[in-house]
Every structure is written in C-alpha cells, then in structure tokens.
Simulated scan of single mutants.
Amino acid sequence: METPHHHDPKLVRTLILDELFDQSLYRALREISPDKDAQKVLDELVQVEIQHLAFWQKFFDSTLDTLDLGRRVKLRVIVLACRLFGTTAVHLILEAIEVYGVRKYLSLWKSYQGQPLGDALKGILMDEFKHEDTLVTQLTERKINAEKIRNIFLGLNDGLVEILGAVSGFFGAFGDAVMVLIAASTTAVAGSLSMAAGAFLALNSEKEVKTTESLKRQFLGEEAHSADMEEQPFGSAVVVGASYFAGAMIPVLPVLFGATNAVISVLTAGLVIIVVSTVLAFLSGMNVRRRIVMNLVIITAAVIITYAIGIAAKTLWGISV
C-alpha cells in the first residue's frame, strides 16, 4: 500500500490493538496448552495475526505496538481461566475470539463498503472465516458443546433475574425475612422445575420431528439424515434446571443468612450479573459493556417494578404477616 489512510483515531487504535491482543493471547495459550493439535492451530493463528497487525500498521501508518492497560488485564484473566479449566477453556476462548472478530469486521465492512478500508477488510474477513471453520471443526472432533456451556450461563442469568425480582416483590409485600425466604425458595424450585421441563419437552419434540423427517426420507428412497442430536433431552433438562436454580439461589442466600431487606440481595445479584454478563458476551462475541449495561438495566427495572407491586399489594389488599 503506497499511501497511509486516515480514519477516526479511536477506530485505528481499536483495529491495531485488537490484532495485537489476539496475537499476544494466541502466544500465551500456545505456551500453556498441552494439546498438540491446539498448539498447531495456535501457531498458525499467531502467524496470521502477525500479518494482520503489520497490515493495519502500514495501512494507517501507525507505530502502535503496545497493549493498553485494559487489554493487558483482560489477557491475564483469560490466560488464568485457561490454566484453571484446561483444554476446554482454550477451545472456547478461541471460538469466542474468532466469533467476535468476524462480527466486528463484518460490521465495519458494511459501513465502509466501496472505500479503501472496506476493500482492506475483505482479506481480513476471508482469514477470519477460514479460522472460524477450522476451530469449529476442532471443537466438533473433541465433542465440546459450546452451546451447552452458554446454556448454563443463560440459565444462571434467568434464575438470578427472576428470583431477584421475586425477592424484591416479597419484601415489599411481606416485609418479613422468613416469609420472603419461604416464598422465594418455593418460587426458585418451581421455576427450575418449569425450566427443566420446558427444555426437556422442547428438545424431545425436536428429536421426534427429526426422527419423523428421517423416516419420511427413508420411505421416499431419499438420503436420510441422522436423527441423532448432540443435546439429549433429559441431560439438557438437568443442566438447564440446575443452572437456573443456582442462579436463583444468589439473591436468596443473603436472606437465608440474615438479611432483613432486599438491598444485599440486589448488590450481590448485581455483582454476579456483571460476571455472568461478561462470560455470556465473550462466548457469544457480543460487546461486553453493552451486555453488562443491558442486564443491569433489566435487574434494576425488575427490582423497582416488583417492589412497587409488592407495596401496592400490601396497601390495596392488606397483605401482612
């Protein structure tokens, strides 16, 4: 490229630092991964990220080559998680990084089509698509179900938000910790059973539909696709129900240990929702900050609305303990 291109400094910084972060992460994971195949993939990714970084530095005529504090902290946290949880975590991290990269570059390509930056993004996107396919294949071969892991965190999120709202409403209506504990615990159990049953019925119905379609194709002499499903109805129901109940217990435990109002439950739930939102956003390739803000807004609205309903019920219908 003969001449540098000038764009928003924030965009330039993001593109260069993201490539530098990915390169640094892949190098770090290469050092701690015991899986030979994963090491090979990581070696390939490091080389590609070196090319991408050099490309953007030349494209924007930039000498930026040092990670900022936020990315350095993020890098250490991810590497620590991979040390703790091993190969499964490494594969999930790789998949999440590639998904985020594809979404980011597609969004930029859409905005800059017909411009030099849009043309430059085409080559980067081709690399990203190839890497994603490679990583998905690696995950499939190892039977790592990323969707199931996401479902665990979604279950935690649902249980936490729903029962936090219930705790707030019950405190507004009853004002008595014992009654709140009984009512919230009962609601948590009922909710987890309902979620488990819903997951079981949904997957069981999907399995029946696939089986019917497979038999239909066999009858017509067509090529029949396997009706086997990676997610089994009963196992998935247990996972969904258990994760929902675990999330539901987060706002209930402060009451169990002596809280006399909803404040501690709200603060505890807020801290946990930040962690859960971060994990969910990262695994899904979403903007982490946007996901955290969205969930915090949701739980704030849930607390305010349910507490107001509890107060109204107590005032209008004379609920008392």
Rank of each mutant, 00 (worst) to 15 (best):
F59C: 04
Q138Y: 14
Y244P: 02
H5M: 07
S62F: 03
H7L: 09
I305N: 13
W317Q: 10
S265Q: 11
V293W: 10
L69G: 07
A89I: 00
M249H: 08
I305P: 07
T315Y: 11
N261R: 05
K36I: 12
A312H: 11
L139V: 15
K110L: 09
E2H: 11
V272K: 03
V293M: 12
E223S: 13
H91Y: 14
I305G: 06
D127A: 02
L203S: 04
D65P: 00
A242Q: 11
M229N: 12
S111I: 03
S33W: 01
S243M: 03
V239T: 15
E162Q: 01
H131Q: 13
Q232D: 08
P116V: 07
G169I: 00
G191M: 03
L11R: 02
A281Y: 14
T137I: 15
K148L: 12
N261W: 08
A190P: 03
V272E: 12
I152V: 15
L67D: 10
D119W: 05
G198L: 09
I149V: 14
N261D: 11
E206Q: 09
S24K: 08
T300D: 09
W317K: 09
K148Q: 12
F257M: 05
A96C: 06
L125K: 06
I250A: 03
D127N: 08
V178L: 13
K207A: 04
M179Y: 10
P251L: 01
S168H: 06
V255L: 08
A38L: 15
T278E: 07
I304E: 15
T211A: 14
G70R: 13
L84P: 10
I152Y: 09
T306D: 11
S194T: 09
V48H: 12
V79P: 08
S33M: 01
I78K: 04
I264F: 13
G114W: 11
I124G: 00
T315C: 05
M126T: 14
N157L: 01
K130L: 11
R71S: 06
V90H: 04
V263M: 08
S320E: 13
M179S: 14
L45S: 02
F200C: 01
I311F: 14
E98R: 00
I124P: 00
E222T: 05
L220Y: 14
F21R: 06
A120I: 10
